[in-house]
Amino acid sequence: MGRYKRIGYFMAAFGGMCWAFSGACGQYLFMNRGLNADWLVSVRLTVAGILLTLYSLARWRGKATAMFRSARKVGALVVFGLFGMALCQYAFFRSIELSNAATATTLQYTGPAIVLVWLALREKRMPSKQELLAVLCAIVGVYLLATHGDPTQLALSGKAFVWCMIGACAFAVYSVQPRALIERYDTVPVTGFGMLIGGIALGAIFQPWHIVGQWDAVTVCGLIVIVLFGTICAFCCYLEGVRRIGAAKGSIIAAVEPVTSAILSVFWLGVPLQVMDYAGIAFIVAAMILLAGKDKKPIPEPEAAEQPAPAVSDGAIE
């Protein structure tokens, strides 16, 4: 494995760990400082979007503005901002608010199975046995987390489960849809404008200028961690990892997130997880491991850092 791909794997994994820490911080603020997902996500995306957009205009002015010369590219960016960025993040934090960080994070990671199904349909092929086994593991994991093995009752509320599944679908969109834009215009400009579009849309709905919760130094520090590490750092690292190793592998490697989230939930937040919760997490992580070796085709490495990336990559939706 070349250095180019190794960096991609590391960045996808680091992005996942940053997301896990961000989710745990969000749950802490929900439980102890009275914040809610409506306010937190709209502020998080807007602030991070402004910072990344300003940075993009300062460093990549040509690439950052070139996206807006094509109605098609603008449309793709708006779809990413609304249905990839905003919906993914709102559904994620809404799920945490309604359940807990470990459960919401793990259920979101059925997203790679959705990516797999989409790519199979797009390529007009049947999934392999390994892929089908991975999807089955993901389904079993969702079942155990949602019901604890008893089909007559849900281990989490119906509303929490619905938002978790919405988050998984949005995660799939987020992993696949912007890759062509990122190949052509770079990770940071696409991520920054996507966040800004999503943050403005959520702000128009939830009106975050009406401050909620209890504010002190802990709340401010938690918000800073969520914006800087859980948003800017996590998204840029993850999307750059996806650009280097592909959407399917990127979403799989970032499955370090549910494991990290479970550890933080138990040892930091004191959330009691049952045996069936651990079993569900194990099945979903097993699905990610099964899929990790699916694509054996080597990814050519650029000869130099200045080499332009191809405009459209395999599996991307522009």
Rank of each mutant, 00 (worst) to 15 (best):
G2V: 09
K5E: 15
R6L: 15
I7E: 14
M11W: 06
F14I: 06
C18N: 09
W19M: 01
W19V: 01
F21V: 13
S22I: 02
G26L: 04
Q27C: 06
W39K: 08
W39D: 04
S42L: 11
A48C: 05
A48P: 00
L54Q: 11
S56C: 11
S56Q: 09
A58T: 09
W60C: 12
F68Y: 11
R72V: 07
L77G: 08
L77M: 13
L87M: 15
Q89H: 14
Q89M: 12
A91I: 05
R94M: 13
S95C: 12
S95L: 04
L98K: 09
A101P: 04
A101R: 04
T105Y: 03
T106D: 03
T106N: 08
L107P: 01
Q108A: 08
Y109Q: 04
Y109C: 00
G111S: 08
A113Q: 00
W118R: 02
E131A: 07
E131S: 09
L132C: 12
V135E: 08
V135T: 06
C137S: 14
A138H: 09
L145R: 07
T147A: 05
D150A: 12
Q153A: 13
L156R: 04
G158P: 05
K159R: 15
F161M: 13
C164N: 10
C164V: 02
I166N: 03
G167E: 03
A168F: 08
C169E: 02
F171S: 01
S175R: 02
E183Q: 15
Y185S: 02
P189K: 05
V190T: 03
F193D: 04
L196T: 02
L196M: 11
G198N: 10
L202W: 00
G203E: 03
A204K: 07
A204D: 00
P208K: 05
P208G: 03
I211V: 15
V212G: 09
G213N: 10
D216A: 10
A217T: 04
V220G: 03
L223K: 00
I224S: 01
I226K: 04
T231Y: 05
A234G: 08
G241R: 05
V242Q: 07
R244C: 11
R244G: 09
R244W: 11
I245K: 05
G246E: 07
A248P: 03
I252V: 14
V256E: 10
I263W: 13
S265R: 00
P272M: 10
Q274R: 14
M276H: 13
M276A: 14
A279E: 04
A279H: 06
A279S: 13
F283L: 13
K294D: 14
K297I: 14
E301L: 07
P302T: 11
A304P: 00
P308R: 15
A309T: 12
D314G: 14
